[in-house]
Simulated scan of single mutants.
Amino acid sequence: MLKRHPLDAVIIGAGVVGAACAHQAARAGLRVAVVDRGPVAGGTTGAGEGNLLVSDKEAGPELDLALLSNGLWRELAADLPREAEYEAKGGLVVAPDETTLTALRGFADRQRAAGAEAVEVAAGELRELEPHLAPGLAGALHYPQDAQVQPAQAAARLLAASGAEVHLGEEVTAVLLDASGAVRGVRTPRRDLLAPAVVNAAGTWGGRIADLAGVHLPVLPRRGFVLVTEPLPRVVRHKVYAADYIADVASGSAALQSSAVVEGTPAGPVLIGATRERVGFDRSLSTEALRRLAAQAAALFPVLAGVRVLRTYHGFRPYLPDHLPAIGADPRRPGLLHACGHEGAGIGLAPATGLLIAAALTGARPPLDPAPFRPDRFARSAPDTPEEQR
């Protein structure tokens, strides 16, 4: 006689991706538990800006996932409270010269062919969209589908709406296996949670959860800083960033990279990002990263040069070498699924990730081809630096 589990799945991670997986699984009629070593949104989600971006995605699997998520976020926004600060503000990618603008046009043409909306803005029209932009820019591409959300609030609301059994402050110490090697649940210092499926939504710790299950997933942390200004009148209307941000997102370099990403918030402060560097889990403050961000933001918006920065924060993006997340069932370990490695795009890609995971759990037809996100696509290799082994 088959033993019936009280749960259909255990989701490891209470960030926005784990919350979205729980939300979509519940909508599919599944009973799930969510377990996290810390609080809701205590990792990458809580350190994010809340980007829901189409604009920075090259045509291909990630853009397809982003477009699906974009529509899902719009649907979810109707049920989110005002505190979640969902705002369909649109994005503006600016070019300093004609050479860069020509490259952006080609990038946007490929995105449009995949279903994204992108409208070229001439230099003389930029001030109509952003009155405080620096003069002398060659032009820009406007992406009306780009949006923003307060990530911690969004994660908390999705998790609450799922009705999942939630266990916070409990680190998963083992992935439990049956005699055949299939997953049968997880162990924490307080309890065993039994289920025929486990979803690894542990963000930057996704590689360690994979190790516990006896499989390899090369998730590495990629550190990033954000500056938060004093509250201001709405001096920045869209999410505005320099075109070199797109190259930084696609880069695999471990060195410090920075490119200005500037946006206002409903509460008043302006958020300024974004840096990227692979330094393991080093949480020390980088004055060089902060200096670069401040200088680049002031170059884009001179009005910010005299504005006070009230605080900074930083976190770690879960990086995978090919810049695509791992989503779906792991054929190397029956019952194990992954939903991690989204790098800086996890908040934007969370709803579609949840939908793919729910389809994999129920055997339903997936909303798009999951093959590019296969968790077993990486050959085993040594970490790049000693710090990344820790």
Rank of each mutant, 00 (worst) to 15 (best):
M1G: 15
L2A: 15
H5G: 04
H5Y: 15
V10M: 03
V16F: 01
V17K: 11
V17Q: 05
A19D: 01
C21H: 00
C21R: 04
G29A: 07
A33S: 13
V35T: 06
G38D: 12
G42N: 00
G46W: 11
G48P: 03
L53F: 09
D56T: 15
D64L: 13
S69P: 03
L72N: 06
R74A: 15
L76S: 07
D79E: 14
L80G: 04
E83V: 12
E87F: 09
A88G: 13
K89E: 13
G91Y: 02
G91R: 10
T99K: 11
T100L: 04
T102D: 14
T102A: 15
R105V: 11
A113D: 12
E117P: 04
E117S: 13
V119Y: 10
V119N: 06
L129P: 10
P135F: 05
G139S: 07
G139W: 00
H142I: 00
D146K: 01
V149R: 10
Q150H: 11
A155H: 11
A160K: 14
A161W: 09
E165I: 00
L168H: 00
G169L: 01
E170A: 08
V172G: 12
V175I: 08
L177G: 01
A179Y: 07
S180C: 08
S180D: 11
S180P: 03
G181A: 05
A182Y: 11
P189F: 04
R190N: 10
D192Q: 15
D192A: 15
P196L: 05
V199M: 09
G203D: 08
G206A: 00
L212E: 12
A213L: 04
H216R: 13
P218C: 09
V219K: 00
R223C: 06
G224N: 04
P231L: 01
P231Q: 05
R234A: 15
R237S: 07
K239L: 14
V240F: 05
I246Y: 02
A250K: 08
S253N: 03
A254N: 12
A260G: 08
A267C: 05
A274Y: 01
F281K: 02
D282S: 08
L285R: 14
L285M: 13
S286E: 09
S286H: 05
S286D: 11
T287N: 06
L290D: 06
L293S: 07
A294G: 13
L300M: 14
L304P: 03
L304T: 01
A305R: 15
Y313S: 01
R317H: 03
L320V: 03
P321I: 06
I327G: 02
P334K: 07
C340T: 14
C340M: 10
C340Q: 07
G341Q: 04
I347M: 03
I347T: 07
G348I: 00
G354V: 06
T362M: 01
P366V: 02
A371C: 06
F373Y: 08
R374D: 15
P375A: 10
F378G: 07
T385M: 09
R390A: 13
